[in-house]
């Protein structure tokens, strides 16, 4: 029995379809969600969500961060921003990475939370560039 994967961003419901497995970029490492997974709420970092159907990956989406709620029947991803990998623009990704790099360089090195936030943005932008390259 497949699990229902839902991806929503603040302005719309992007995807709602049954999949055999979804791999989501959790804050502490990639996480594969199969049907019957224990209930979890996880924080996401920037990365790609991969949908697996019939034993192979069928489609990939880039998310810039967000949350996921996993229950045995369902996996709901609340993405800050989600785009199918094929539509990620290389130039936009690089622009964002440059911006994030600059923000990180400008951040106050003593202000640890701000520094961490800047680093997370940097990593999300890097993942976006990687997604654009893979497409």
């Amino acid at each position: 029995m497949p699990t229902l994967l839902e991806i929503v961003s603040p302005d719309r419901l992007l995807l709602s379809q049954p999949v055999d497995m979804a791999v989501i970029p959790a804050a502490e490492g990639e996480m594969g969600v199969l049907p019957g997974h224990a209930p979890m709420i996880v924080l996401l970092r920037g990365g790609t969500i991969t949908l697996h159907e019939g034993g192979r990956p069928t489609s990939r989406l880039y998310v810039s961060g967000g949350f996921a709620e996993v229950t045995p029947e369902r996996c709901t991803v609340l993405a800050d921003e989600a785009v199918p990998v094929a539509e990620v623009s290389r130039s936009a990704a690089e622009a964002r990475l440059a911006e994030a790099d600059a923000a990180y360089a400008a951040a106050d090195k003593a202000d640890i939370p701000a520094l961490e936030a800047a680093m997370q943005r940097q990593q999300a932008a890097r993942a976006m560039v990687a997604a654009a390259e893979a497409a």
Partner: peptide
């Protein structure tokens, strides 16, 4: 279109 996100967020 914005409703699904708000609803799921509420649930979480």
């Amino acid at each position: 279109a914005a409703r699904p996100y708000a609803e799921r967020m509420q649930r979480m």
